[in-house]
Amino acid sequence: MKQKFLLREAIMGLFPQDGFSPPQRVMTDKVTTTELEIGKVVTNQPDQGAGASITGDAPKQKLNLAIPKGVDGQSPAPNALSIGTVTTGQPATQAAASVTGEAPSQTLNLTIPQGATGPVGPQGPTGPQGATGAQGPKGDKGDKGDPGVAGDTGLTGPKGDKGDAGAMGAQGIQGPKGDPGAQGPKGDTGLTGPAGAVGPKGDTGAQGNAGPKGDAGAAGPKGDTGAAGVKGDPGPQGVQGVKGDAGPTGAIGPQGPKGDTGPRGTSLYSEQISATVVTAGAKIAVKFASTYTSPPTVDGITSWNNNQMVSGFASDITTTGCNVTVKQSVGTLLLNGSPFTDAPAGVTCRLLVVGS
């Protein structure tokens, strides 16, 4: 049977006995871990009493016991040595051992000083995460961060209603010419001005083949309208007459209510491009001065070729250019014809490009 104790001092040899040394006191200069085991167990004479001693050097020592035998002719109970109190002494104090009681029942009491504090052990594993605490008070407002990367262009908001016209203010000093703005919606047609002076008569076009003239009959009831005949080839265009004076400008109508502010869009850029007709009706390839992130909006800017209105129409629009077809108003508007025709060679039109 083995027991381990921390000992600074061992008391060896409590009583004189056969084969044991007289009591000794052994001092150690440091705290060590001592292994204490049962050594010799001898039987003393009846008059010698019980005894105990510790032999050997730390860290491995032996506890030796001496137990007296009974008187001849008697049948005493065998001496039983039991462990009594085991007291922990203060650090740096002396260890002690004592035997109390009378045979055949005695008790071994020990006092063992507390050892020095050992080294810090390794850090234990992290425990489970605790429950989330209550929300703390709102912190102070942080510094303004750096501007983020520009986001994608948002969708164009719906067009607001036209606002009412405000009262005209006094004319201010003319400012510097600004960049061309996006073309606004077409305004209402003004009142027709007085007819201009008749221009000089143009050259007569080539006359078509005349049919034979029939005899005039008596006027009968008006018959049903016959099917339209085949349209003859147009004669060459006569010389354009002088443009009449412009009529007076009509009064400005009342301003409509102000529309709601649309969502803020991204920065837009604009430029004007021009296209000159080489062959009537053929598309003209035009390259933009800037490269846009997406195909821009391209609208024709109305101009005049003498009395004929000229406008360009864009198609096949990309981020770098488009194709332009130039149209010109016809001199005489037919009820069953188009108000525009292909502009002749040499006519130039302008278009407004708006994009991001």
Rank of each mutant, 00 (worst) to 15 (best):
K2W: 11
C322G: 12
A134S: 10
K162E: 00
G235H: 01
L6C: 09
G220Y: 01
A345E: 07
G232R: 00
G172Q: 06
D146K: 02
P200C: 13
K327M: 12
T88Q: 13
G312N: 01
P76C: 06
D342G: 00
V278K: 14
Y292R: 06
A282L: 09
S338L: 11
L63F: 06
D316P: 07
G241A: 05
P234G: 04
L63D: 02
P46R: 01
T87I: 11
Q171I: 09
P125N: 06
A314D: 08
I54P: 00
A227Y: 01
P339G: 10
A285T: 03
V86L: 14
G196T: 00
L7I: 13
G184E: 05
K30T: 09
P91K: 07
S82N: 15
I67A: 04
G127T: 08
P221S: 08
D164N: 05
Q272M: 13
A58R: 11
G220T: 06
P221Q: 10
Q240C: 04
K162S: 01
G208C: 14
E35G: 10
C349S: 14
K213M: 15
E9T: 13
S294P: 02
V149N: 14
G145W: 03
T293Y: 01
T117P: 08
V149R: 04
A134V: 11
T302S: 12
V230P: 00
P147M: 01
G121A: 10
P236H: 06
Q240V: 12
D179W: 08
A167S: 09
P158V: 05
A251V: 09
G321F: 11
E271W: 04
D342E: 08
G49L: 02
Q94D: 15
G331W: 08
I54F: 02
A251T: 07
V31T: 12
L81K: 14
G244K: 00
Q106D: 00
G244Q: 00
D299N: 06
A182E: 14
C349L: 07
P236C: 05
P339T: 07
T132I: 07
K4T: 15
T189H: 15
E37D: 10
L352M: 14
P104E: 05
V326M: 07
Y292P: 00
P295R: 00
T55N: 13
D224A: 13
I173S: 09
S315P: 11
P59A: 13
T249K: 12
E9A: 09
L63M: 09
T34Q: 14
Q135W: 02
K283V: 04
A210Y: 10
P176R: 06
V326L: 11
T28W: 12
I284G: 06
P339M: 09
Q24F: 14
T33Y: 14
S21R: 12
G19K: 10
T225D: 13
S303P: 09
G281F: 07
S290N: 15
G220F: 01
A167I: 09
S98K: 11
P76V: 13
A97V: 06
D146C: 05
T249C: 04
V310M: 02
L65S: 04
T341F: 04
N64I: 01
E37H: 06
